[in-house]
Design a protein around this nucleic acid. Structure first.
Lengths: 339, 339
DNA sequence: TTGAAAGCGGTACCAT
DNA sequence: ATGGTACCGCTTTCAA
């Protein structure tokens, strides 16, 4: 076996199941690869007869360009990274599915990662996403105080959603967590609530603008009581914990839940206590279609997740296309709904 | 952000701020690229002194290999594609988040696509996923009768979940839709139900093994009535439609919903009718944590979504690693739960 | 109007 | 023990 054969063999083995390449097309059509390339991309004039020939060869070989190779030459991969802090939760589910719809429309794909409220994992994801060559990133930081060095180098544009990191500058789309929390708390106070509980997520290392807003309003009204704040972890079941807390702090006029999944936990724990002996109002920071079917005294913030998704996506797209305007923080409006 | 920062930023972006390459490292260390490559991959012996030098240069330049270039040479991208038929729904949400956890553990990333029950989109997604160089695909077909030519070429291993296509051979993980539907229907019949409705999804072009199972059991019991089947679209609201159908077909002893989101619609439409004047049992093909908090006469199938995700992921991984065993259809068990 | 060839950032074979 | 270099598939000058 000649050396050439050996090489050929190796080549076959390595690309055993590979698709046809531009060279194949060029050979078949009897033109050069550059001509093929230009036919495909319309990057320069090609005589109609050659163009036709090339086109028909492309069809014959069912050729389609290798995006990886294109990307290596600096082109867009048409992929955007989505890095959220908790994919399990319904908020990010809705966000991701809204983004996915937009991606479909714009011929992008989504590289979806879950940092699971873990800064180490988050860091790893940012690195691999960057290395995999995404064109942009939609990002919900785990922690307000992490410094995202890789992102600061801005090899790629990104926008933040839902939460903001103190240190990394970018566009932000979401509600104004602080103000909304303040507003909500005030609303409850106006309804006559005095003892207002706040359930925050255990796992999250996020500072909690929501908590600050809550604190502010309580303090203004002179009803702040630290004992009314409880941390609940996202994963484990903490029914007993919550129930105990609730009993010990009784009477609790209202409970503010930092998101719909926490709200579920609270409802589940307090279940019969809510329907019968008490008049505690439950408030959730995001809602969920299932809320409609529930029988509890429930209030919630109606975050326009679709809108957030859309604005984030569009902002990112414009950045990808080179928009260099100063960064914007866009706070979307949302209503308190009474269920 | 100051104007100066913005300018600096723009400058960096324009310069394409490319990361350092292997050549940079090689130059700095005064060795050849092959040596650097071998140091990194441990693919051949390198003297300790050189190795150290290279390593420190790598650190100094914060070099990290370009995955795209690696992939071009035939290596794994460590990315797996996930193509589901409806990302909005809670079933696939749970599946994706379970897959995401596994991906995290195995240092893979997920390219998540939604075919939105649309075969055209599905085809497009399969093509781009393949072109983007995924190492494997987890796939829930939109339609049982589409022929997936690209997949048949097996450039990449894939496993099907939740639904199976007639024509493309691969591993399958999920429940046995036909048998479970049969079982469920029979259970309802044994409970004394005679008029059993079936709500199927409008958008789906899927044949519906579930429907067949339902049909079989009804027929066996001599209680089949075509008028008891209704199609409901996933997106639009069809409350009136459902309510009308329900009234017209009254009495309806049970309603089988093809998934939890359809079930939501049904519950929403029939709301007060269920709690008061009737004793209709609602059955859902997958459940959801919110079911616990509902007050309706509800039964559901407890699909072990985590398990399905895990088996799918592990199966795919083994295929990626070259496992060549005959394809398996794995039907997971699941219980009917009474809420 | 078209072709040749130099990259892009690696891997791996061939030498030495 | 290491260096040189062809090659992966494509884009993009530069020449002709």
């Amino acid at each position: 076996m000649s050396p050439n054969d050996q090489i050929e063999l190796r080549r076959m083995r390595r690309k055993k199941k590979s698709n046809s390449t531009m060279k194949d097309v060029a050979d078949l059509a009897g033109v050069s690869v550059s001509t093929v390339s230009h036919v495909i991309n319309g990057t320069r004039y090609v005589e109609d007869s050659t163009k036709d020939k090339v086109l028909s060869c492309i069809a014959e070989l069912k050729y389609s360009p290798n995006i990886i190779a294109q990307r290596l030459n600096g082109l867009n991969l048409k992929t955007i990274g989505v890095l959220v802090s908790n994919l399990q939760g319904s908020f990010f589910h809705r966000l991701v599915s809204s983004l996915s719809t937009l991606a479909n429309k714009n011929e992008y794909d989504l590289l979806v990662c879950d940092s699971a409220e873990n800064t180490e994992l988050e860091k790893r994801h940012i690195n691999t996403l960057l290395k995999k060559g995404i064109d942009g990133l939609i990002f919900a930081p785990v922690d307000h105080k992490t410094h995202y060095t890789e992102l600061d180098q801005r090899t790629v544009p990104f926008v933040q959603v839902d939460r903001v990191s103190d240190s990394c500058k970018s566009d932000y789309i979401g509600i104004n967590n602080y103000l909304q929390a303040q507003l909500i708390t005030r609303t409850l106070i106006e309804r006559g609530c005095r003892r207002i509980g706040f359930v925050r997520t255990e796992g999250s290392r996020y500072r909690g603008e929501r908590l600050s807003g809550y604190y502010q309003s309580c303090n203004d009204a002179g009803i702040y009581d630290e004992a009314l704040i409880i941390r609940v972890s996202t994963d484990s079941s903490n029914e007993k914990e919550i129930l105990e807390w609730y009993r010990k702090q009784s009477p609790v006029d209202a409970v503010i839940c930092s998101n719909a999944d926490i709200c579920y936990k609270v409802l589940h724990s307090l279940d019969r206590h809510l329907t019968t002996e008490s008049s505690t109002v439950i408030f959730s920071f995001d809602n969920n279609k299932w809320f409609d079917l529930l029988q509890f005294p429930l209030l919630s913030l109606d975050q326009p997740i679709e809108l957030i998704g859309r604005m984030a996506f569009e902002t990112l797209l414009s950045r990808i296309e080179g928009n260099d305007d100063p960064f914007k923080k866009i706070f979307v409006d949302c209503d308190i709904v009474n269920l």
